[in-house]
Amino acid sequence: MAPDIGQSSTHVPRRPRAVRDRAERVLSHALRVGPRAMAIASLLALLTGLLFLAVQARAIFSDELKQEYVALVVEAVGRAQAAAVAASETKRTFDLDQTAADDYRRAQANLVARVKRLAALEDASPFASPHVTGAALSPDAVASDTDASLDAASTYWHAQRDRTAADLRMRISGVANALIVLSAFVFSALITALVMYSKRARQLAEQSSLFQHAALHDALTGLPNRRKLFEVIEEAAAATSTDPPGKIAILYIDLDGFKAINDSRGHRAGDEFLIGTSRRFRRAVRVGDVVARIGGDEFAVLIREYSSDAQLASIARRLSACVEQTAEEMGLRGVSASIGIACWPDSVKDLYRLVAAADETMYQVKRTRKSGYAFAAPANR
């Protein structure tokens, strides 16, 4: 039996290493740029939008206060104008009938009070508004001066009311539009994050599948390794739990003369021989059967549901022919196969002894004659 090729060969297969490197790069990229970055950007945009809404809400509140103030002033102007009209009517009555002097004085006092209240409101105005003149505040004010002052105030404050209402409507419309845009952005960011998360999860699943495959398969030949072989044996045994139970067999193969290839032709030639032999092994068995590389120049073939020992012997001869054909193709001599065959449950009752029994039988073949095959005796149960 030749030493483990993993210890004697320095050739590193390119494809598995490239696959692993690509997988690591994709995984690193997925972890570095993904939903986390999108979430941070969305959070910053959301905070900016909320800050804008807070500023606008404060401005709306201020505009509402201004609107209420302007409404009070407009109301005061209207009452002052109404008092001025009443005073003017009372004066005409007084001019015709001196007995209406008390009514005239009361009307004038009411007008002065209304104008003073209007002046007080205008003094507290946050706007650069025109103020009622001092002459209009006097009880002896000329009616024309008072009317002119009140008309100017009415014109200004009505215009101010319209501007304040327009500003308030514009701010409310801006807030509504901002809410629509912010909602659309948050919804889009959520959908984008979900898509990115789904893509990242798919990438991680692919990476996990690649890593799992690498853990259960030989890097050089792509065949299942020893660990995978034992998993498949358990699955095959569970699948044969029928009445009557089915049969499975292991053919343990060792390449005789393989060490001479590494010594004479180099390790690259040894790797090429292993790869070529593995391909022929796979073609020599059924689709449901499993060819595994145990290590170095040792292989194992799991045969499911065979009918007789003659069928296993035929498969062993085909596997030996695969080794010889590969050697012939590469122009090599003195390379053959020693094969040990163990069957479950006929020759081995303990499923976990199946591979070991086939291995022991293969060593018996190597010690007695090298090349060929032999069945495990019932004593190996």
Rank of each mutant, 00 (worst) to 15 (best):
P3I: 14
G6M: 11
Q7D: 12
S8D: 09
H11W: 13
V12T: 11
P16A: 10
V19S: 06
R25F: 13
R25W: 07
L27N: 13
H29I: 08
L31I: 12
R32M: 11
V33N: 06
G34N: 03
P35V: 13
P35H: 08
A37I: 14
I40S: 09
S42N: 07
A45Q: 01
A45T: 10
T48E: 10
A54K: 07
Q56A: 13
S62D: 15
D63N: 14
E64H: 08
L65C: 09
Q67A: 11
V70E: 05
A71Q: 15
A82H: 08
A83I: 01
A86Y: 01
A87Y: 04
E89P: 02
K91A: 13
R92F: 10
D95A: 14
D103W: 10
R105V: 15
R105N: 11
R106F: 09
V112R: 03
K116T: 15
A119F: 06
A120M: 13
L121Y: 04
E122K: 03
D123M: 10
A124C: 05
S125C: 04
P130N: 00
V132K: 05
V132A: 10
V132E: 05
G134E: 10
A136K: 00
L137V: 08
P139Q: 03
P139E: 06
D140C: 01
A141N: 04
S144N: 14
A148T: 07
D151C: 11
T155N: 05
Y156G: 06
D167C: 14
L168F: 07
R171S: 15
S173D: 15
G174Y: 13
L179I: 11
L179Q: 10
A184Y: 00
F185H: 08
V186T: 15
F187W: 09
A189C: 05
L194S: 05
V195H: 08
M196L: 12
M196A: 15
Y197I: 10
A201P: 00
R202I: 01
A205D: 08
Q207P: 02
Q212V: 12
H213G: 02
A215M: 12
H217V: 02
D218Q: 07
L220A: 05
T221G: 04
L223N: 02
P224V: 04
R226G: 00
K228V: 12
I233G: 01
A238P: 02
S241E: 14
G246D: 06
K247M: 08
K247P: 06
I250S: 04
L251T: 02
L255W: 06
F258Y: 06
I261C: 03
D263W: 07
D271S: 03
G276Q: 15
F281A: 02
V287A: 12
V287D: 09
V291N: 05
G295S: 04
G295R: 03
E298H: 01
F299E: 06
F299W: 03
F299V: 04
A300F: 01
L302I: 05
L302E: 01
I303Q: 06
S308F: 00
L312W: 07
R317G: 08
R318K: 10
A327K: 01
E328S: 13
E329F: 06
G334A: 08
G334E: 11
G340Q: 08
I341V: 12
I341C: 04
C343M: 14
W344M: 02
D350T: 14
L351N: 03
L351G: 10
Y352E: 15
L354C: 02
A358C: 09
M362L: 02
Y363M: 01
V365D: 01
K366T: 07
S371M: 09
A376H: 07
A376K: 01
